[in-house]
Amino acid sequence: MTVGVVLNTTGPGNQIDATVRLAQEAAAAGLRSAWFGQVLGADSPQLAAIVGREVPGLQVGTSAIPVFGRHPLVVAGQALTAQAATHGRYHLGLALGTKLLTEGAFGIPFERPVARLREFLTALRQLTETGTADFRGELLTARTPLPARVPGAEDGVPLLVAAMGPRALRASGELADGILPYLAGPRALAEHIVPAVTAAAEAAGRPAPRIVAFVNAVVTDDVDAVREKATEQFAFYEQIPSYARVIGLSGGERAADVAVIGDEKTVAAEVRRYRDAGATDVVFSGTDIAGDADRRRTWALLGDLAD
């Protein structure tokens, strides 16, 4: 099982420089992968390409680019460039996105998200594997009157999806290489998510999918204070139906209920529960909410688990 961390920098300094420094620290701690979110700030594939080139020991990934407001031709170019820059260590994550961001930021109706995901993945697979596409769907068209290859990225790019609902899991199992569930605890993974995506992959004749579980986790002695901070910081996700659903399937009511907070023994035991539930990778997010000392302590544990 691969262990990794989401790198998220804040502060007045240069974000790219700060992220590279954090990635170097993560690699020195023994972590195997670094992941970068995509909202409206830094471009995640570019950030991953820079970090992967500066820190050769890390796998790098995007988690995750919404399929609304993007086009497969553009995303393929970004992903293939990152793959060439990192010599095969880049992983592309896609997401359905949310109504709030899609309509509020892009002014695009949030309609038929799973159908759009299917078409996006179909066109993107052609582009990342062959450098060409001839796809015309109901919602998207992707054609290559000129080649879209990137020398150095001939082996393609792993395609992962932040899928947790039944229809998105079915599409991901059929068309992607794995999933990136977030706020899904071991119970939701074992009873709902892993069986659904695995069955879809088997029915489509595809290999067993990767299950890259993103977990809010902190090693700390001040459990009550950190959980209170987590309750405040992660409350935003409770407004989003897909996250609210998976929190409930995990046995929680608040996003903080599925956060892993405690000493090394407690957190290591929870990582094992994720592995036993079917996770092939565990990526820690939110490790910075308790300050640098606890973040470093958390990363040290992850490095030990990786070994």
Rank of each mutant, 00 (worst) to 15 (best):
I193Q: 15
V194Y: 02
V194P: 11
V194C: 14
P195V: 11
A196P: 07
A196V: 10
A196G: 13
V197E: 14
V197D: 04
V197L: 13
V197C: 10
T198D: 10
T198S: 10
A199F: 04
A199Y: 02
A199L: 04
A200S: 11
A200D: 12
A200I: 05
A200V: 00
A200N: 09
A201G: 03
A201I: 08
A201H: 02
A201Q: 06
A201E: 07
E202V: 10
E202W: 04
E202S: 07
E202P: 00
E202D: 10
A203N: 02
A203V: 06
A204S: 04
A204H: 07
A204C: 06
A204L: 02
A204G: 04
G205M: 12
G205P: 00
G205I: 09
G205H: 07
R206N: 11
P207W: 02
P207T: 04
P207S: 03
A208H: 05
A208S: 07
A208M: 08
A208N: 00
A208W: 01
A208G: 04
A208I: 00
P209Y: 03
P209S: 03
P209Q: 08
R210S: 04
R210I: 09
R210M: 00
I211H: 05
I211L: 10
I211S: 04
I211G: 12
I211Q: 12
V212Y: 03
V212L: 13
A213L: 08
A213F: 05
A213W: 01
A213R: 11
A213P: 07
A213Y: 01
A213C: 06
F214P: 11
F214C: 15
F214R: 14
F214W: 11
V215Q: 00
V215A: 03
V215P: 00
V215F: 00
N216P: 14
N216K: 15
N216T: 15
A217W: 02
A217M: 09
A217C: 07
A217Q: 00
A217T: 09
A217E: 05
A217V: 10
A217N: 05
V218M: 03
V218P: 01
V218W: 03
V218F: 05
V218H: 08
V219A: 02
V219G: 01
V219C: 06
T220L: 13
T220P: 00
T220W: 01
T220F: 03
D221A: 15
D221P: 12
D221Y: 15
D221C: 15
D222I: 14
D222K: 11
D222V: 11
V223E: 12
V223W: 05
V223Q: 10
V223G: 07
V223Y: 00
D224G: 13
D224N: 09
D224T: 09
D224P: 02
D224R: 07
A225I: 01
A225N: 04
V226I: 05
V226Q: 08
V226S: 03
V226W: 08
V226A: 09
R227V: 07
R227E: 08
R227Q: 10
R227F: 08
E228K: 01
E228Q: 05
E228S: 06
K229N: 08
K229F: 14
A230V: 13
A230G: 12
